[in-house]
Amino acid sequence: MSTHLIAFFTLREALRRRVVLAAALLTLGYLVLYGVGVWFGYRDLQETQGGPPGLTEGVVSLMLVGGLWSLNFIASVLAVFLSVGALSGEVDQGTLHAIAARPVRRSEIVLGKFVGFTLMLAVFIGVSASLMILIVAVITGEIVGGSWAGPFLMLLASMLLIGLALAGSSRLSPLPNGVIVFTLYATALIGGVIEQIGDVLESAVMFNIGVFSSVLVPTRAMWDMASAQLATGGFVGELSAGPFGASNPPSGWMLLIAFLHLALTLGFALRAFQRRDF
């Protein structure tokens, strides 16, 4: 089996490419800005007298969820940019010819790339989310962030996008594939907002459109589940409605749908790439 060779090769390539370096530097800059924001926000919060019990913890938690939402967004963009040309782009450039002529199965190339990109995103999310939780903890003295399930669900959202981009990349060249994957990602994002509005207005149609978009591309649903895991404090649910989170986190079924989605996109990528002419 050569899957691990391709996976480590993919990881090494991602680490050496400028896109990851750029994302890392931007994220670092963002974390600095975020730290400054949390510092002033927390100072103002301490000057506020009264308020319901648990206010401080709730607001700190909300600041963290908002920050992690941005990291989740960067991770999603990174996932798409890394994988959108991984198969077709390399076939068109000719860089995959010599590798695919080796005693390597096509499935090992697809799975190796998937594993490589996933490892890359795991490192990115793991490091940046840990730094963010650390920043909040150092400034406020509050250790928030809930369980490990939160970052894992963020990673799962990125994995869904990698699967989708690889499926597209087995047939489409990078540009149209990128347009399609980003459109689907945006559909899920907007679908989530429509679902929330539908919930407030008690519009079944709007709610169902939102649910449908989440089944189509469960990335947004994964974030909603993640934010529910990350947020601590009783009233955060109501406060975090809006782009950062759902008032009603999706049920456990969504997790099953996400894994099914991943199996389907990867299955398609494997099958289509197997049949592809170089």
Binding site: E13, Q93, T95, H97, A98, A101, R102, P103, V104
Partner: peptide, 14 residues
């Protein structure tokens, strides 16, 4: 394939 060596026409490598 384990016993074949190939230089592609494009000779483009990573």
């Amino acid at each position: 394939r384990a016993e074949v060596g190939y230089l592609p026409e494009t000779f483009r490598f990573h």
